Amino acid sequence: MKLSVLINNYNYARYLRACIDSVLSQNELGAEIIVVDDGSTDDSRAVIASYGDAVTPVFKPNGGQASSFNAGFAASTGDVLMMLDADDFFLPGKLARIADIYTQRQVGWCFDRVTNDEAGLVPAEIAITPIDKRETMRAGGFPTLPVPTSGLTFHRSILSQILPMPLADDVVLSDNYLKFAAAYLAPGVLVETPLTYQRLHESNRYTNTDRAKSLKPQIMMATGLHLARRFDGLGRMGKSLVTGGIADAHLGMTDTLAEIDRVAREARGMGWTRQNLTTQVIRKRITGAARSLLGR
């Protein structure tokens, strides 16, 4: 079994070396390391070039994180693919633990929780929870998968059904699309023991930022619409994501109706009418208001 580590980078030169080194330092398995630079304007490309043949560079114009996922996957040859943001890094032993999981279990994906402790260590025993939410998702429900990009790994047979993924501005389509699609396509496992360090800093584009609250509805809408378009069985869940995003966006009546009209146009042919979208948005707003009054 061959591993591929797909590092996506945009203007994170100051963190990039620690990221790459965290993989090289435990690469006794011979994983290929693909570093996708998404049109950086800092010293990122010089850092990448300094590693010579130890990494496979992919230099591309700026196109957003989804385009970096697509480019990294296209350049990869591994059976198991591990995602890694350039400002994060893998804890010692992660590669071997992930390889063991895919060898011992018939799973399509494995997501591990992250830690914000830079000196974190992986214990001898790790906790693993099997997850199969395929029927729940077909019925319109959601899986709970609280793992960011750097904790995501996929078997190639699953990721090849997901990528290339649609492109979107900023971080509107990223790990949520990957996680939900994978959970719909195959059973997997959640590693409850952190195997990855997630760096929180002033340049985070989403995590731990003030922008997260305003971006969340956009992410919900874009993710739901594109998942429903791509996978026939995710129509109900996709509509629920879209209407939940509209309901949570705190738009006035005119803007809410305009957003519903936009979605109805983009979802033409999927049975998402202006009327049924409006009904779901109203229901979700009423439910949200009731929960707020009850303090829940």
Score class of each variant (00 low, 15 high):
255 D>T: 08
214 S>Q: 14
178 L>Y: 07
267 A>R: 01
240 S>E: 10
213 K>R: 13
272 W>C: 09
250 H>P: 00
275 Q>I: 11
277 L>F: 02
215 L>E: 13
263 V>H: 05
178 L>N: 09
208 N>V: 00
195 L>E: 12
200 L>T: 12
289 A>S: 08
266 E>T: 04
184 Y>M: 07
290 A>K: 15
195 L>A: 04
250 H>M: 10
289 A>P: 00
222 A>S: 13
184 Y>L: 09
240 S>T: 07
190 L>W: 09
215 L>S: 08
186 A>P: 06
262 R>N: 12
236 R>W: 03
271 G>N: 05
176 N>L: 13
182 A>P: 01
269 G>C: 01
264 A>N: 06
184 Y>P: 10
243 T>M: 03
228 A>V: 05
265 R>G: 14
205 R>G: 15
189 V>K: 08
181 A>K: 03
177 Y>M: 04
268 R>E: 15
222 A>Y: 02
240 S>L: 10
197 Y>F: 15
227 L>G: 07
225 L>G: 03
225 L>V: 01
216 K>A: 15
214 S>E: 14
246 I>S: 05
282 I>D: 10
179 K>Y: 00
261 D>M: 05
179 K>C: 06
268 R>S: 11
246 I>M: 04
275 Q>F: 09
222 A>C: 01
265 R>H: 12
262 R>Y: 11
201 H>A: 10
214 S>G: 08
176 N>C: 11
233 G>K: 03
282 I>N: 07
268 R>V: 04
180 F>M: 12
208 N>H: 14
228 A>N: 06
226 H>Y: 10
254 T>W: 11
263 V>Q: 10
192 E>G: 08
244 G>S: 13
203 S>H: 15
270 M>S: 09
273 T>N: 01
233 G>C: 06
182 A>N: 04
217 P>M: 03
277 L>R: 05
287 T>L: 12
237 M>Y: 06
196 T>D: 05
181 A>W: 05
253 M>W: 06
246 I>Q: 05
259 E>S: 15
208 N>Y: 02
181 A>F: 02
248 D>W: 00
268 R>Y: 07
230 R>G: 04
182 A>H: 09
280 Q>F: 00
249 A>T: 04
188 G>V: 02
251 L>N: 06
278 T>F: 07
260 I>R: 05
222 A>K: 07
192 E>K: 11
180 F>L: 15
234 L>C: 08
212 A>Q: 13
271 G>S: 01
174 S>T: 13
193 T>R: 04
